[in-house]
Amino acid sequence: MEKKFQFVEIDEQASEHIAAPHYSYWKSVFRTFFKSKLAIAMLILATIIFSIAMIQPLFSNYDPLNSPNILDFSLRFNPPNSQNWFGTDNVGNSLFDAVWAGTRTSILISFISTAINLTLGIAVGAFWGYSKKFDKVMLEIYNVVANVPFLLVVTMMLYVIGYGFWKLIFALTITGWFGIAYFIRTQVMIIRDREYNLVSRCLGTPTSRMITRNILPYLTSVIVTLLSREIPVIISTESVLSFLGIGLTAATPSLGRMISQYTSFINAYPYLFWIPVSILASVSISFYIVGQTFADASDPKTHM
């Protein structure tokens, strides 16, 4: 009779083997991100706007104080055409040059301010959430700062120190990081006492490494969310300030100032108003959607 059963060797190690392919955090983040078609479209839009805004003004040499065509009446209020893609304004300047110069200023201000706010906010917030003594002091300071409206602080600062590109950035960042730091503090406090952090304490891990290896990696998604919210917020704050006529000097091109100038032409020459507004909206929306999708993708719960 044929032997139907036979003995086999047991390989203890075989049951330990993990068959799944290697997991890589950042690879999974990008894979999840590129699943969203809207995000890809917005990323392309953001890249195009960003590149044009950074490169075009270098060639156009647009200067809001200088109107070389002011005497040529035929160049005033030209609607968008093949020569001037976005048309011309009341002093014969090309709106195309003006818009990109303004966008460049807005993007630069928002990127620099966000970078400063986020760096300071995360650094202070991480330590704030970790140290109970520091928390007591910082909470009192925060309560004072948080109860003064942000726009009031910025406006007052600008009246005191004057207008200008770097002065505006200073005004936007002097208290701007506090909110971020407070938010990070709360997040750190939630994670701080989890069991794996007790383990690290039992292994003698110093606090600095606890923050960088045990806490901050868990906050990637939260930080990217903050980033994607902060950039549009700063862009619109800058526009509001320029619209109100504070913040930047007349020599700095700015979308907000442009919109405020062209508001009077909203009925007669609507393109003068709507083109800068839609560029401003596209910048905010595309950066926001890209950031939000990236924040979702950087949450490992979405990787499965």
Partner: peptide, 14 residues
């Protein structure tokens, strides 16, 4: 120390 709950005692991001 060996901890009670292996689900929470390892750093998931390391």
């Amino acid at each position: 120390m060996i901890f009670q709950d292996p689900a929470t005692s390892l750093n998931e991001r390391a």
